[in-house]
Amino acid sequence: MMRQFHKMHGLGNDFVVLDGRVDPIVMTDALAKALSDRHTGIGCDQLILLSKSDVADLRMDIWNADGSGAEACGNAFRCVVKLAGAHTIETEGGIVEGSLGEDTVEVTLPAPSFGWDQIPLAYPLDTAELPMAWDELKHPMAINVGNPHIVFFADKVDERRLRELGPGIETDPVFPDRINVNVARVEDHGSLTLRTWERGAGLTLACGTGACATAVAAIRQKKAASPVTVHMKGGDLIIDWAEGQPIRMRGPATHVFTGTIDLEAFA
């Protein structure tokens, strides 16, 4: 079964996009993991499947590189808007709106959630400052921006330490759906430096929902004011947010190449 795919990325966070709107594709966790493998598959951080929607221009489902599902992916949202020209996207994390600019793509995510059962956590805790620590990473804020995140603010963003601590934090029993882990340094009142350990994918060059969650946390804690420029290894995103409002994210999306692949060979 030869099918066309698109390789895309947002600030180096890369995706394989399959379009099943005309000819539906049955995706499994095992197939998604096989296609995402960088040695024996196509290779990506997340696999994206497009399908028809009754409530939006299209539906977008997401699998992490390890085959687990994800409710939202900010960088992939921008790529899908650019690829398909969609203005509304149905996701497990809610309806996302998007628009194409001259050099960038802007997407609007639903308003963030802060309740312990909305993250979700295994039991009630203060999500504004979780009474937890993993070595030097202490008292993060927990936020759901369509998918679950915790945000640590530190004087130094140590990628090596995040690589060491990230797997244990991601899979801590307090997070029943696992968690995306963000470590950020405030540069000034309008910018942050961020590194993210993504649930199911590990360290990536950029994380769109991580940038959103971290900007929201910084604004809520009065460490920054909207709009916030979030500097990541792959580049910058601009995040706009006000209390009780949706989150707006603006940044680039890149189409790398189009190819074909025999899905049955990976089943």
Rank of each mutant, 00 (worst) to 15 (best):
M1S: 15
M2W: 15
M2P: 15
Q4H: 14
K7R: 14
H9P: 11
H9S: 08
L18S: 02
I25R: 08
V26H: 15
A30H: 14
L31Q: 05
A34S: 14
A34E: 09
S36F: 10
R38P: 05
I42A: 01
Q46E: 12
L47C: 06
L49W: 12
L50S: 05
L50H: 10
S51C: 03
S53H: 12
S53W: 14
V55S: 14
A56T: 07
R59A: 15
A65L: 06
S68R: 10
A72S: 14
C79V: 05
V80S: 09
A84S: 13
H87E: 13
E90W: 08
E90R: 08
T91W: 12
V96W: 08
E102V: 11
V107A: 02
A111Q: 10
A111H: 06
A111D: 04
P112E: 04
P112H: 04
F114E: 03
P120Q: 12
A122P: 11
P124Q: 11
M132Y: 15
W134H: 12
D135M: 02
D135C: 00
K138A: 15
H139K: 14
P140K: 07
M141H: 01
M141A: 14
G146P: 11
P148R: 06
F152Y: 14
R161G: 00
L162F: 06
E164K: 12
L165N: 00
L165G: 00
L165K: 01
P167V: 02
G168T: 03
E170I: 01
D172P: 03
D177P: 00
R178Q: 14
S191C: 06
T193V: 13
T193I: 10
T193P: 00
G200S: 09
C207F: 06
T209V: 02
T209S: 13
A211H: 01
T214R: 00
R220G: 00
Q221N: 07
Q221I: 00
Q221M: 08
K222L: 05
S226R: 08
V228F: 07
V228A: 01
D240C: 08
I247A: 00
M249F: 05
H255M: 15
F257V: 07
G259C: 05
I261L: 12
D262L: 09
